[in-house]
């Protein structure tokens, strides 16, 4: 317990450190609180792992058919995650199609072009956008985006519940997050670099795109990865707007349930413990947990490994 002793002066010159009961009791309490979050992680891994193991132990279910099956039909014992996984991919893809370029553009504008006044006006708006509950975005997708898509592409093409609408609205949700993370990265690039580039005769755009963005690329990449992770874990928008029922399709205008949407629908009814449905949501949850955790870890590594450090 070396770290505990750090706060106290080391006993020197024959002075003895007094043992204070109160201090140590408080320290113990604080330490337990600090460690508590570890218990949360252990709890997540243990519970997800335990129930997922039960799921894979049931007859007719094995890991390979879980990962490669194209049918998720619990009533006929088909548990292939691909239909859920592809629709998660489609919604996330649509979300990133909106959020990556627009978030990047907004970040460059806010960090390189906007005056202090404009930024003071725009940043709070983006923060409000990021703070709106996702169920509200789900409502927005269903009552605005879907009718809009149906008017543009035709009612026969676009179903009432579809992954495109959910994905596009998810893009609006993730946009401010990417914009704010990328802007932080851009603002952290020291001005000396910009001035040097101006001195060589670069225009504002050239400085921004060829000097500042490459210098901040690790932060920008991290923002994108976190955005993807957020899109994969996003639940309420897809639960409301992407449709119920697993559907193995790559058509974004058809309804298809995502991994998160499936968990919400299955557990929405009264779920009896130890049923195959109950166990299956843990298996899906475990997969979701690992995918998002890996993405988050990669983004942290990207920042650490590729960050340009300036004085």
């Amino acid at each position: 317990m070396e770290q505990i002793a750090l706060g106290y002066p080391k006993s020197r010159n024959g002075l003895k450190r007094r043992f204070r009961v109160g201090e140590n009791a408080i320290l113990a309490l604080l330490f337990i609180s600090g460690v508590f979050s570890i218990f949360t992680t252990i709890g997540i891994v243990y519970e997800l792992g335990k129930e997922a193991l039960l799921f894979f132990r049931t007859p007719n279910v094995d890991l390979w058919s879980f990962l490669s099956g194209t049918q998720w039909q619990p009533h006929i014992d088909k548990f292939g995650i691909l239909p859920l996984f592809t629709s998660t991919l489609i919604t996330s893809l649509f979300a990133m199609l909106i959020a990556a370029p627009l978030g990047m553009g907004a970040a460059i504008y806010l960090s390189e072009y906007a005056s202090e006044k404009v930024r003071g006006f725009l940043k709070p708006i983006l923060e409000i956008l990021a703070g709106i509950p996702t169920i509200v975005y789900g409502y927005f997708a269903l009552t605005f985006m879907t009718p809009l898509l149906r008017t543009i592409f035709g009612r026969d093409v676009v179903e009432i519940y579809n992954t495109a609408s959910a994905g596009l609205v998810m893009g609006i949700l993730i946009l401010p997050m990417i914009a704010s993370m990328a802007e932080d990265a851009l603002s952290a690039v020291p001005n000396a670099l910009r001035e040097a580039a101006y001195g060589l005769g670069g225009t504002k755009l050239e400085v921004a795109l060829k000097v500042v963005v490459p210098a901040a690329i690790s932060g920008i990449a991290a923002a994108f990865i976190v955005g993807i992770s957020r899109a994969i874990g996003e639940t309420m928008i897809v639960a409301v707007a992407a449709g119920a029922g697993p559907n193995f399709t790559f058509n974004p205008f058809k309804g298809a349930e995502t991994m998160t949407g499936h968990i919400v629908r299955i557990s929405g009814g009264d779920l009896s413990y130890d049923s195959i449905d109950y166990n299956s949501i843990f298996a899906i949850g475990l997969m979701l947990f690992f995918v998002t955790l890996t993405l988050n870890l990669i983004s942290q590594q990207v920042v650490r490994r590729f960050r340009e450090v300036y004085e």
Partner: peptide, 17 residues
């Protein structure tokens, strides 16, 4: 690190937990 990672876990996982 654990706390930073927990902040990025999708909320539905907490529901399952």
């Amino acid at each position: 690190t654990n706390i930073n990672n927990l902040a990025g876990v999708p909320s539905i996982i907490y529901g399952i937990l």
